[in-house]
Simulated scan of single mutants.
Amino acid sequence: MQLVRQKYSSVGNRPGSVTALTVLLLVAALASGCAAEADAGGTGAPGGPAELAAGQAGEAAAPQAGPARALDAYAEGLKRKQAARAVAAKKWGLSRTPLAAPEPPKAKPRITTREGFEVPDDAGLPPVFTTVPTKEKIVFLTMDDGAEKDPDLLRMMTELDIPYSAFLSDYVINDDYGYFERMQKRGVTLSNHTLNHRYLPGLSRAEQRKEICGQQEKMRKRYGKRPTLFRPPYGNYNRDTLVVAKSCGITAVPLWSAEAFPDHMEWREWDRDLHPGDIVLTHFRGEGDWKGSMPDMIRQVMETITSKGYAVARLEDYV
């Protein structure tokens, strides 16, 4: 290229047709020489065009091998994980193997209060919602209160690798805090469901503060951190609820769009169906309250979720 630039400058003042012809001849000659060298197997001085081209090709190929291997390893890992889930599904009596959730988004979606769930002057307050904005066929499984402490639930959910979130009330968990500590160690996020599960709109702001912020402090002392998610008992709240919740660290108020029992589902939406991003509610209850155990409930809700082509994702990856 240096030769071409030099020759071009030396003939730059000649008539245009001659200049163009000269440049074309020089470029052709240079290209021909490079091609001949390449055809001869790249012989010539070290560092020549053929050797440089070969080096550059090698450099370009090397980075491609790393990501390709990583992708293959990732795919193989997913395959093994799903195979283990299939074995666990058979062990726990599920008729279908739960589907694997996609990778969570790099940036969490923006969540706003659902239309109709607003309170006066709710700007800046934690959003209240029943569905997370996403186009993926995923739903989120949540469990409330903490009355039933079934060890089979811990084993079942761990072996099936199904994520879920726990919203806890102190008055029913205080006889066995350790059960929920074991749950937390298995990757479950523990969130706030008040101290005593009272109907919040019937309380003063000070009483609501005791219920909500008191549970924040209980959970910080017992489990090492204050929750950021809060679910009001019965799904009932007013503006004081949200103001108080925000004041002690709550950033979002997830409600639900469907509820699971061991023998049936209850639907909040008019079409009685699941939708991408729906939050499913159930409770820590057993045969004393339900027509079945907590594993029975998981079998029921997972049959519904999987048969409709949905996977269960981790709520905290999106909120």
Score class of each variant (00 low, 15 high):
Leu3Val: 11
Leu3Pro: 09
Asn13His: 12
Arg14Gly: 03
Thr19Tyr: 15
Thr19Asp: 11
Thr22Met: 04
Thr22Gln: 14
Ala31Leu: 11
Gly41Pro: 02
Ala50Ser: 11
Glu51Ile: 10
Leu52His: 11
Glu59Asn: 13
Glu59Cys: 07
Gly66His: 12
Pro67Ser: 13
Leu71Tyr: 13
Asp72Arg: 13
Asp72Gln: 10
Arg80Ile: 06
Ala83Asp: 14
Arg85His: 11
Ala86Pro: 10
Ala86Glu: 13
Val87Thr: 13
Ala89Tyr: 08
Leu99Asn: 09
Ala101Gly: 01
Glu103Asn: 12
Ala107Met: 02
Arg110His: 12
Leu125Met: 06
Thr131Val: 13
Thr134Leu: 00
Ile138Tyr: 01
Ile138Gly: 01
Asp145Arg: 12
Gly146Thr: 03
Ala147Phe: 15
Glu148Met: 11
Pro151Gln: 02
Pro151Arg: 03
Pro151Val: 03
Phe167Asp: 04
Phe167Ala: 03
Leu168Asp: 01
Ser169His: 09
Tyr171Asp: 14
Asn174Pro: 15
Phe180Glu: 00
Arg182Thr: 13
Met183Ala: 15
Gln184Val: 05
Lys185Gln: 11
Leu190Met: 07
Leu195Cys: 07
His197Gly: 07
Arg198Trp: 10
Ser204Ile: 00
Ala206Trp: 02
Arg209Glu: 14
Gln215Val: 00
Gln215Thr: 13
Lys218Ala: 15
Lys218Asp: 13
Phe230Pro: 02
Pro232Asn: 06
Tyr234Gly: 10
Tyr234Met: 11
Asn236Glu: 12
Ser247Arg: 07
Gly249Gln: 06
Thr251Pro: 00
Ala252Arg: 06
Pro262Ile: 04
His264Trp: 12
Trp270Glu: 12
Leu274Met: 09
Asp278Val: 00
Ile279Thr: 00
Glu287Thr: 15
Lys291Cys: 13
Met297Trp: 12
Thr306His: 03
Ser307Phe: 01
Lys308Phe: 02
Ala311Phe: 06
Val312Asp: 01
Asp317Val: 01
